[in-house]
Amino acid sequence: MQISNMLGLDWLRQNAFVAVFGMAVPTIIFLLFVGYPILYTVYLSFFSWNGADGAKTFIGLQNYTDMWNDSYVWTALKNNFRWLVVTLIFPVVAGYSIAYVLRARLVPFPALVRTVIFFPVTMSLIAVGLMFLLILNPMFGALNVALESLGLGFLIREWFGDHRIAIYTLAFVSGWAFTGMPMIFYFAGLGDVPKETLDAARLEGAGHFRIATRIALPQLRPVTAVVVMLTIFESMRAFDLVAVMTKGAPFGSTTVLGYQVYLESFWNSRVGYGAAISTLILVLSAGLAALVLSRLMKGAFDG
């Protein structure tokens, strides 16, 4: 065996194109703009730094113990999980149901429905947030007027002014804008489920609910995995809607981890502390993603 071969030089020579453009260039960009920032964030989390001057003080785990005692971080953490639960239920279930009724041709004008529901996916959350500020407004909002005229006035709430429900309002708004995504994914996935399987089930007298949940869904596991992962990432990085709709108000009840990072780093000048919260988000997202990968998607990304 030649030395060059042992070092992998032969492989490199044979695959120069792939090695350079397929591995080296993207890796450099990735390391510079993604890898290094992550590591630097973790590094910063052990320091006290106001972001203004160069004086960073090493304080060990102080930021993390502060975090443990910070009620805002706990609220934010709980809110991220509330957000996750709402977005796992509302847009994913709605998206799948809609995709199914569209594929099963149970609803007229399927193309129109698909367009209408997918459209909000293209809207920035800033725009979505502004729109729902107008619609949910307690003084001139359309929703309360609509509820009133339908005789459902008792349902009227202070949608983003009541600290008990504001976070759910935000999560639902985000779900509204997100539903098109799972719908399209499931719509595509359902198109690949063998027609014979579904027809056979139908002949045996299975109802649509049964087909949708027991027969089609198990075949869509990879799609579900992707959808669930996207949902997790979306809810862990929730920020825009909070920034535009409530800024954490009322009573700090709508803050999320991402918003706390932003506040602490850029408003309270506690960059190191912000980095510690960032690290928490990273660990959470990675942990949840790993969980999903191992449970739902064995081997899907193994190439």
């Binding site: 009541d162 600290h163 954490g248 108000a249 009322p250 009573f251 700090g252 009840s253 506040l263 408003w267 309270n268 506690r270």
Partner: peptide, 18 residues
């Protein structure tokens, strides 16, 4: 802001009866 933000949140919470 580190103090005033908490203050504003707290007053808002108190007014809401939270």
């Amino acid at each position: 802001p580190a103090i005033s933000d908490r203050f504003l949140d707290a007053v808002q919470g108190a007014l809401a009866g939270a």
